[in-house]
Design a protein around this nucleic acid. Structure first.
Lengths: 135, 135
DNA sequence: CGGAATCCGGATAGATACTG
DNA sequence: CAGTATCTATCCGGATTCCG
């Protein structure tokens, strides 16, 4: 058993099991976080904002393929959960800045560890797929 | 130990950015992993298998709400990526066991750190939502 | 027991056009 | 510039039924 660095020291196994068992419960944000990590743009945007505050159109350029609709909707969700702070500067033309909150930065950290795991094991996954598909 | 889940020590920022930018690329399993973590049953099943090998109907009972269709499909996906080993015992009636591979265990470790983060910050998220919704 | 096949509804997300 | 509105395609996942 690899008792690796973070996450292994004090996992509340029972609470995680309970959190996974149900959706939409009050104290069970585990499912919400997994859903968010899995949605199409949230992690990408959080990652982008990890480099510093960005404006709407900067994000639009920095995240190729995202539509204004999804950019707006995803940012609103991130803002609602307290991961992103939205600041409107009352200028003409209007200027809106998005930045990670401290909470958003901790999310980015754990997302990084997940993505880093994915990079480290990408070859293993590819190998397994080739072997599986060979049959 | 090769990987510590903390994620702060040697993140390949550039490769992660590249991996997030595109979907379905050869070496970019980052997106695949995020999608898998976000899908409805994969993490739950991996978590369940973390407790030891299980048979199909054991999983069906152990994971309330899952349909045989999604159980089968999710297990096949996990098997294809090398996270789960499927063993058929040629008995009557047939008996099939699913177990985590070593790779699957490392996935479970990183998933744990993510879920643990979610548990730790569930209150923060709830607070942020209440504040946001108040407006 | 351990699935596969089929059908179907709701959510997710893309494209496009328009506005303060 | 920073979004919203609408319309639509797609896909995920649930229910049901059947098979080896």
């Amino acid at each position: 058993m690899t008792t690796s660095g973070a996450g292994a020291e004090s996992i509340d196994h029972a609470r995680i099991a309970a959190a996974l068992a149900v959706r939409g419960e009050p104290a069970c944000r585990v499912r919400d976080v997994l859903d968010r990590v899995g949605d199409k743009w949230s992690v990408t945007l959080v990652h982008e904002l990890g480099g510093g505050a960005r404006r709407f159109s900067e994000l639009r350029r920095g995240v190729p393929g995202i539509s204004p609709r999804m950019l707006s909707a995803t940012l609103r969700g991130l803002e609602r959960d307290g991961f992103v702070l939205r600041t409107v500067h009352p200028t003409v033309p209007p200027q809106v800045e998005y930045a990670l909150t401290p909470l958003g930065h901790t999310l980015l950290d754990t997302a990084w560890s997940l993505m880093n795991w994915a990079l480290e094991h990408a070859d293993d996954i590819d190998d397994a797929r080739r072997e599986y598909d060979a049959k």
